[in-house]
Write a protein that binds this DNA or RNA. Structure first.
Length: 273
DNA sequence: GCGGTATGCCTAA
DNA sequence: TAGGCCTACCGCG
């Protein structure tokens, strides 16, 4: 589940459920340094939860911040209080007044300094889900890079929050082969890509899953898209648009999905690197 | 029960 | 580029 939409949804949900409350924080698994957060206290008040790309920051009172990155396996479980006993694998448990959030299997769950947080933010690109994001650096990168567009979309330093599913789907919707050089895209295509990602990611936040079919207009009430009809190419053997075979190949150490009929490779003016 | 796979990303070589 | 991290699920038998 963890692409940018999952992270932003968690930030929203957790802030609504827990902000302003003095939380009991534990690490049943023992691998999260609770003492670094709590000090000698028993509880600490959560102020807000921020999402930047695939990174989460839980901002507590007394200047303490916990950085969470789910990686490939990380998940949250929300429990109504009183919560059941935690699984042994629970890295961090945040227990509020009415709700308890359990975190399992993250790549990162650590108390970070303001400096460390700034370093993390400095190495990620603009996040289409943030209202304060500027796509200009993304456009500039595309214009001057011969890197295949499919690889660019997974590079969190260029654009933050896009993962393997959104990569496959946005390229299909724009009829671009993942191997097409970034600088073969026109400025208009680059802008269309950003706008499309904003819409798709926002929809993902609202629906709590990735849906790229049946339009992206959020204001129009939609029936729930049935399972198996939510994507065009990712994880499929046949293209939802044309019925042709979906090809898979490794790109940036991840499996790219492409319909070569809908997404013909476009040669750039300069040879591919 | 076992093996393969996964929506991520870091490091060593 | 390969391997490691780390958890859950699914198909198979």
């Amino acid at each position: 589940m963890p692409e940018g939409h999952t992270i932003h949804r968690a930030a929203r949900d957790h802030e609504r459920a827990l902000a302003g409350q003095a939380l009991v924080v534990t690490s049943p698994q023992g691998r999260f340094d609770v003492e670094a957060l709590l000090g000698s206290g028993e509880r600490v008040t959560l102020k807000r939860v921020e999402a930047w790309g695939k990174h989460l920051f839980y901002v507590f009172a007394r200047g303490r911040t916990v950085h969470v990155h789910l990686g490939l396996f990380g998940r949250f479980h929300r429990r109504a209080n009183p919560p059941p006993p935690p699984r042994e694998s629970t890295r961090m448990r945040l227990e509020g007044e009415k709700v308890t959030i359990d975190l399992v299997g993250p790549t990162a769950c650590e108390v970070v300094s303001a400096k460390k947080k700034a370093e993390i933010l400095a190495r990620i690109g603009p996040d289409p889900l943030r209202d304060d994001a500027s796509p200009a650096p993304f456009y500039e990168y595309l214009a001057r890079s011969k890197t295949p567009i499919g690889a660019v979309l997974l590079d969190q330093s260029v654009i933050a929050g896009v993962g393997n599913v959104y990569r496959a789907e946005v390229l299909h919707l724009l009829k671009l082969h993942p191997s097409t050089a970034a600088n073969a895209l026109s400025r208009a295509e680059a802008k269309a890509m950003w706008t499309l990602l904003v819409g798709l990611l926002r929809r993902g936040v609202e629906e709590k899953r990735i849906v790229t079919t049946h339009g992206i207009a959020l204001e129009v009430p939609r029936k729930r898209v049935p399972r198996g009809e939510s994507l065009h190419v990712y994880g499929r053997t046949s293209c939802r648009s044309c019925g042709g075979d979906v090809q898979r190949f490794a790109q940036r150490a991840r499996t790219a999905h492409v319909c070569p009929t809908c997404q013909p490779y476009r040669h750039a003016e300069s040879p591919r690197a």
